[in-house]
Nucleic acid binder design. Structure first.
Lengths: 301, 301
DNA sequence: CTACGTTGTGCTCAGCCCGAGAAGAACAGC
DNA sequence: GCTGTTCTTCTCGGGCTGAGCACAACGTAG
């Protein structure tokens, strides 16, 4: 239930005393934040938006953009959209719909291990955002340290776990690890795991949802769409079969009747343009090429 | 990120003052709870575990079992397992593994709208639990009001939203609505939506994960497994095709070499017994019979 | 004990989808 | 103009799917 009531059936008016009486620790030391895994496609490869931390712990490391939930003011979805706008400079002050309308935002999961932040118990609700190729977020207010990073440059191994518990940031050597810049590829807190979960989710969702169109502008071509699938899945797809399957799914794409102005960069005919249809689920699904890899864990719910 | 740091770069020691300086409202009035959607199969139909609320708001209504996250002491997963044990009497005091080992627990989603609890801003992390047919939870400590309810008896329409905002419980008529008992089929807070999301998740997960075995005892038969799918999907399946497909998925089930002692209740031969295999994902998947229903929303991530 | 209905298990068959390959046409760069 | 690239469509063989059926094993009614 949203708030328990068995042990202390006090009246509904005195929330704070009643809460504190139930469990004093449930009152003070929990913070709720919202973190965003924002993904986009740049130059044909998947990029994620990261900020550089300016204070310990994990000073100098990259982290997912995020911040506190404003209690009583906003829902989690609204907080995620606000954080994404604030920390990136995208969608500056115009109404939340102009720039953000082509942005897909969905909840990814919640991470609440007590030791994930060495300062206090922080419960983070992670969100996943897909966007078309967006400008660099240097123009924002507190977005000076935000930038797009290729996900292939990041270290997503389960190394982000043991560090948050013990010594904060200098177990790694203080920036001397043979790469450029301080902690260039390591993510703060458990953000490596959050990002890995987000990537698993995206890869799975492309199979049965039309979400790939969220990475593209309003009008796109079938080869554009195929490039999204190839970048996210990191696999080459058969152009002919992909074309056939996309057009055979009802409601996935709708033809605009037009074609591109020019052919491809290295030749080829002009492609027909499409825009996203009204389907929410793909029937039949676009399944990944069968890989005999036995298993990753509980991926993609 | 887990805790933001751009605006107030104070030292890492004074967390509380620094937090309060950033946004005083982010300090006090947010509570974090964990709610559990516990599902099981009883007499061939899907049941969910509910408790009866003994205090306002929504006094007398049913609600999902849950409670506060103990700050600094436990992770979200541990809190969900603890709440399920406490409020049901299952897994009394023996180590968390004896009774719970055959229980599947996974995170469902987080619900944090400011008005979902009229008392204060409560962020609830919902979990989904599958269990074999368990005894009635009357023996527990504060589990007196907990009981299994058929999900078909519950009202899952989007009516649970508007009530939490305005008058708490009497907009509905104060128990006079032609049903037996006070608010027999209505769920408190936004728990109807949480349960609906959980049901969507289960229905989708049976397609590509071996999770159906979590509803069954260690040894089971293929018709037992088929009964799980038919109950969750609420559809009759072709026995021969189901048999063929289950055995064709590597790692889904493993034969024990034995058969049942007796035939079916209304005749029929004895069935071979199996136990769950080591597969985490089903390849190929057991897809639902194609329903031409155009859409539900963003279901089953 | 016999007859009958029920059910587990396996088989066949037609239809559809999938992967692979290739062909034709349109286009950029040289 | 020539060449290489790419979009789009087509064909073909294999595998999976849904539907139906066959047979045997079993409980129950009589």
């Amino acid at each position: 239930m949203a708030a328990d009531d068995q042990p202390a059936p006090t009246g509904p008016g005195a929330e704070q005393e009643w809460l504190a009486a139930y469990d004093p620790r449930a009152y003070a030391p929990i913070a709720v934040t919202v973190d965003v895994v924002a993904l986009t496609l740049r130059h044909g490869s998947l990029h994620v938006l990261l900020v550089e931390r300016g204070a310990p712990p994990y000073q100098g490391c990259r982290a997912l953009p995020g911040g506190f939930l404003r209690a009583g003011e906003e829902s989690l979805d609204e907080a995620a959209a606000r954080e994404l706008a604030e920390e990136t400079g995208l969608l500056s002050a115009s109404g939340a719909g102009a720039t953000l309308c082509r942005l897909h935002l969905e909840q990814l999961g919640t991470y609440g291990a007590p030791e994930r932040d060495p300062r206090m118990h922080v419960v983070s609700v992670a969100y996943l955002a897909f966007a078309p190729d967006l400008p660099d977020p240097q123009a924002g207010t507190d977005a000076a340290a935000a930038a797009w990073h290729p996900v292939s440059d990041l270290d997503l191994r389960p190394c982000g776990r043991s560090r948050a518990a013990g010594a904060p940031a200098d177990t790694h050597g203080g920036g001397v690890d043979g790469r450029t810049g301080p902690c260039p590829l390591t993510l703060a807190f458990d953000h490596a795991r959050i990002l890995a979960d987000g990537l698993d989710r995206v890869r799975a969702k492309l199979e049965y949802s039309p979400l790939a169109t969220a990475f593209l502008p309003h009008d796109f071509t079938i080869p554009d769409l195929r490039a999204v699938y190839e970048a996210v899945w990191d696999e080459k797809l058969h152009p002919g079969n992909f074309h056939r399957k996309v057009l055979s799914v009802p409601g996935f794409v709708e033809s605009t009747g037009a074609t591109t102005e020019r052919g491809g960069a290295r030749g080829g005919p002009r492609a027909r343009t499409y825009h996203a249809g009204d389907a929410r689920l793909l029937h039949p699904a676009l399944l990944r090429p069968t890989r005999d890899d036995p298993a990753d864990g509980t991926a993609a719910p």
